[in-house]
């Protein structure tokens, strides 16, 4: 950044931002557009994506679905993060959802439209129950336990040979069409994104955010912290278990890879790049990283190296995340103002 001598940089809210901060001030289409346009554009963009199939081809249609899946995982991770539960093993929720859907489909022969909601709900309950005993732990201790869980599940399936063992369950029911699948995952993604924003804005969400700041004070405020954390775990796990169940039916296969490390790592990297703790940032991060990592496939094994390098660059240059950066540019402007006195500079 260039520094102009004798001047300091000032960052101010745009006039329109200051006006629309108060909801009663919205009086013109311009102001309403200013507020609603970013999200409207994003929704339109998402809804048009599956229709671009004739231009991009089936491979990139698949990438769109995977991107939405990673976005759902990242939203799920971000929700838990905003309650102070840092998960290093999000694959456990993903895998539980995937295996429940696979088992329901293969043994009971149910259609995806029944198995997916069932697997998402029961998987989230199972995930919450699995972690309930360790909810007292905070920070790195909780993170380490979540890290161990997917490894544990994977080896459990390998050793006991249950649920198809190393071979997995295959030949499961498919979606009616790829277009149907794309729109299903896109609608769920939009629902989760705006639902989470709504929850965090409510008083219930406020309590969750307070738990992250100081759970002792929340205890002292007469609130049952473990209960709220368990609820948060359930709500947070839902998109992840849905993602697992969805992908099971999309691939018509579920195997031990459902607990793979990438489903734990991608949500974290996407969240960090988009802006840790921000729901729109989570989606943005996933929508940048996933297609990026796909397009790097041309580089073969170098892919991971380039990917890591980009990650480091992002973290160093934009530690607050891409979304906060864009938000700042959208709501505020910068200008150089002359220093009044020389003494100010001495500081």
């Amino acid at each position: 950044m260039k520094i102009k001598k004798g001047y300091r940089k000032e960052r101010l809210d745009r006039g329109i931002k200051a006006r629309v901060d108060d909801v009663f001030a919205i009086s013109s289409y311009r102001e309403i557009m200013y507020l609603a346009m970013p999200r409207t554009l994003f929704i339109i963009f998402l809804l048009l994506l599956p229709l671009s199939g004739s231009i991009t081809g089936p491979y990139w249609q698949g990438v769109i679905i995977i991107t939405c899946i990673i976005a759902l995982l990242t939203l799920s991770w971000t929700f838990m993060y905003s309650v102070g539960l840092i998960s290093l093993g999000h694959a456990v929720f993903f895998g539980i959802g995937a295996y429940i859907a696979g088992w329901l489909s293969s043994s009971l022969n149910l259609s995806p439209l029944i198995t997916i909601p069932l697997a998402a709900l029961s998987g989230a309950v199972l995930g919450a129950l699995l972690l309930y005993p360790v909810l007292r732990l905070r920070g790195i201790y909780f993170a380490l336990i979540t890290f161990a869980l997917p490894l544990f599940m994977m080896r459990l399936i390998e050793a006991t040979g249950c649920l198809g063992g190393t071979a997995g369950l295959s030949g499961l029911h498919a979606f009616p069409s790829r277009l149907f699948a794309s729109y299903l995952v896109i609608f769920v993604l939009l629902f989760v994104l705006f639902g989470y924003l709504k929850i965090m804005d409510s008083d219930f969400g406020l309590v969750l955010r307070a738990i992250r700041d100081s759970d002792l004070s929340v205890h002292a405020a007469g609130i049952n912290v473990p209960l709220f954390k368990a609820q948060a775990l359930f709500i947070g796990a839902l998109p992840a278990t849905f993602a697992g169940a969805f992908l099971t039916h999309y691939y018509r296969f579920v195997g031990m890879t459902a607990f793979a490390l990438e489903y734990s790592i991608f949500p974290i990297t996407s969240a960090v790049i988009g802006g840790t703790g921000l729901f729109p940032g989570a989606v943005l991060g996933a929508f940048i990283l996933t297609p990026l990592s796909e397009s790097l496939r041309a580089f073969g094994t170098l892919r991971i190296a380039i990917y890591s390098l980009l990650l480091v660059l992002f973290i160093v240059r934009l530690p607050e995340g891409l979304f906060s950066f864009i938000q700042k540019k959208y709501f505020q402007f910068e200008r150089w103002v002359p220093l009044e006195r020389k003494d100010d500079n001495a500081k």
């Binding site: 406020l206 955010r209 100081s214 002292a220």
Partner: peptide, 26 residues
């Protein structure tokens, strides 16, 4: 009700939102 010797507010929330938490208790 008790207060803590070392303050434990909810640092990332606006001040008045701090009080929503006890007001949300049963």
């Amino acid at each position: 009700a008790r207060s803590f010797q070392t303050v434990k507010p909810f640092y990332n929330l606006p001040v008045y939102k701090n009080l929503i938490i006890p007001l949300y208790s049963n």
